[in-house]
Design a protein around this nucleic acid. Structure first.
Lengths: 221, 221
DNA sequence: TATTTTTGTGAACTTTTAGTGAAAATTTTT
DNA sequence: AAAAATTTTCACTAAAAGTTCACAAAAATA
């Protein structure tokens, strides 16, 4: 279960966030200032921190730096006004996300999900039966035998793997792999898919076509 | 192209928002009170609404509720002062976001982008008894068995789900799914409904016909 | 009940879409 | 600069999907 620490001097804010988090089944810890926060971080295995910048005693920035000394924890910063926005942009030392008050609870939950998802997603390889893709070595193996694919095919395959079981539109593939500035024919994808399927041999059916949309890399767990 | 409806009694506010939206290439509709807003929603395929709470005639809250009866549209509420903040937090019936005046146009645009992005992604699945629609995988399951439907049927079903318990006219379905430039016979819908019902098997009755109007996806909660 | 309106449906017909091989264009390697 | 590899375009085909239509069935109305 996700353990979330909320650091804010306003009790109301903490309560509201807590309520929403509990709906999502997160375990919530509260701290009303930076010192309490540090204490909690030291004694609990916190997965994510929601941290207000403007606080009495130990302010958000300083708290953030202190926490980083203890352990790297994904953090979402809250700033009081949108004027702070620019400052935040300049303030770059690994913040995972930030929001300006007032914010919608829905959005916060969405961001929490996004951040936790992101920080858990650095995989080094993908294995399914005898298909192995090694992201570090940049190789693909089937039945212990390396198969060669072109760079584009490799990119498509890894994109599929990272988004397995999600239907991907041609547009999405194009902008993800070709970039937003590609103005060619989107049927080009079909040709690459054809070649990738051929190269995947007996695993060709992992790429299923989603009619009127695009393709999907389907792994039935 | 994104169609945005701005509902505010102050002309100046509307103008400013409009200008910024047009920079982003959004198509902007304006309404100076709730009644106009309802009219526009009924006759256009609006994607997002920016709605002021304080208005003469039909106020924001009421307008919001009325719109929900017509169709589910992501909405950003504007409240006049930050004191309203607490009220808004308690006010929970699916608002996607809200802002307090004065706000920066930049921030509004950022939120519009966030909301539209989210509303296209947030709902990952719909489950009713043993009927499961997975919007990411683009699949439909009944009794743990995947059923195949055509693209149009899938679109209709997801539109129904997003607007469950709301009667949808044939015109509305046409403009939402076929687009404004479809000039064919609206009985075509009936054929698609027939096929969709067949594919839904024991759940066929979720699609109820609303005589002289269209259809409704009815879920008794 | 008779008549009219509206919806359900099977089947014929039309259009759209994806798979594919080949060729042209581009990029990379030799 | 030539050769090789890769990427992109394109035209053709088969399959899938979409549309129309006529008649049956059902509901509303007179």
């Amino acid at each position: 279960m996700l353990k979330i620490l909320i650091v804010d001097d306003e009790k109301l804010i903490r309560e509201v966030i807590k309520e929403y988090c509990e709906v999502e089944n997160y375990q919530v810890f509260e701290a009303e200032d930076g010192n309490y926060a540090l204490d909690i971080v030291r004694n609990n295995d916190i997965n994510l921190i929601v941290l207000d910048i403007m606080m009495p005693k130990l302010d958000g920035y300083s708290t953030y730096k202190e926490i980083k000394k203890i352990r790297n924890i994904p953090t979402i910063l809250l700033s009081a006004r949108s004027e702070e926005y620019d400052k935040l942009l300049g303030f770059e030392l690994g913040i995972d996300d930030y929001m300006t008050k007032p914010f919608s609870p829905k959005e916060l939950i969405a961001r929490i999900k996004a951040v936790t998802k992101r920080s858990n997603k650095e995989i080094e390889s993908f294995i399914y039966k005898t298909l192995k893709v090694d992201f570090l070595a940049h190789t693909i193996e089937i039945d212990n035998k390396e198969i060669k694919v072109t760079p584009k095919e490799y990119e498509i395959l890894t994109y599929f793997i990272k988004n397995k079981n999600i239907a991907i539109s041609r547009e999405q593939l194009l902008s993800a792999i070709w970039g937003y500035d590609f103005f060619g024919d989107d049927r080009t994808i079909d040709t690459h898919i054809k070649m990738l399927r051929n190269n995947l041999g007996k695993y060709r059916d992992l790429i299923v076509t989603v009619r009127a949309l695009g393709y999907k890399f389907e792994i039935k767990d």
